[in-house]
Design a binder for these strands. Structure first.
Lengths: 173, 173
DNA sequence: CATTATGTATGCATAATGCATATATAATTG
DNA sequence: CAATTATATATGCATTATGCATACATAATG
């Protein structure tokens, strides 16, 4: 029965999201703040609009979010030299530290979830999750959003990246 | 590299959670409301305290949540005959309808995510996700929480249920 | 040069939440 | 059995993240 697998996958997704959420909630940050830190650590030089769509929040809310993060010394605002309207956001050193910490916790949870699989099973599982994830991606903006908490150095082997590259190559033919 | 698999699994969990969330956000319900409906549809006859721990919300917030749901005609309060302090919560007919609708949307998203797998792959995937999920369960309360949005008729084959049964059998020896 | 579009910021109202506390009922203990 | 303690629900209050409407500055367009 496929329904059983659907339930299991849904429950697993929730359990993992909960775990990832719990790994960060201790530090007193709101979900949107954590996602913002994740994105800014992932793709520096974002504007407020970029961030707004990446974390699926209204522009106004994003402005306030950035103001909070700036007040906490995690993010810096600076004017773009190319377009005076734009505000360039960057993580401060402290923001980078927090980003690393959060990433580490997240990876720790995922690693411990995966430790019940043997190397061969991990390889099998990797193939299947890659396929599912790639098929789920709707467009570039969605792909960007999905990667909002990934560990950056590993992005070279990221299935999301691979999928988007492949699609743009196909559509350019 | 295990990091790649960790990233992929994390991204997949987020993407699925987003999808499940998006499938319900259209109907104008807050996350906690949806989770409450899910739980009440899943395990009828819950008290406010039960619900509070199941959805990981303070008691006060849960009281307000239930009041909102009652006002919307989705949930009914009734006094317990065994313990006059307790309030028994039940879904109304309208609440049941909503529950079915939300479940259907959730299952639809999961089904479409899984459709890129062949039957054999689904079987493989099922084995692996079952194993991971079962190992992730911390205690009965956590298991309960993880199942908060599952489709009830399929619970007989639920790995969470199986794991908890097996554990209690083992500890009773 | 005028108009329109884009990017950021702010005033205001809303709504979900937590903490502290109150009240009612059950359980326990002396 | 009376008194205390624990449990379950409810409410007053403050907080806070959010969205909508709007304002302002700058860029792009005609």
């Amino acid at each position: 029965m496929d329904e059983a697998l659907e339930n299991t996958l849904g429950a697993l997704a929730l359990a993992l999201s909960d775990d990832i959420g719990a790994s960060i909630q201790t530090s007193g940050f709101v979900q949107s703040e954590v996602e913002a830190i994740g994105h800014l650590g992932h793709a520096p030089e974002m504007t407020i609009s970029d961030l707004s769509s990446a974390i699926a929040l209204s522009h106004a809310a994003t402005v306030r979010l950035v103001t909070r993060l700036e007040a906490k010394g995690l993010v810096s605002r600076s004017q773009s030299t190319l377009d005076a309207r734009k505000v360039i956001l960057k993580l401060t050193a402290q923001g980078e530290d927090l980003h690393e910490t959060l990433l580490g916790r997240r990876q720790g949870r995922l690693r411990s979830a995966l430790q019940v699989l043997s190397p061969q099973e991990k390889s099998q599982f990797s193939t299947l999750t890659n396929r599912i994830l790639r098929a789920m991606l709707r467009d570039e903006s969605h792909a960007f959003r999905v990667c909002r908490l990934c560990d950056r150095p590993v992005c070279a082997s990221c299935p999301v990246e691979a999928e988007m590259v492949e699609r743009s190559a196909t559509s350019a033919e």
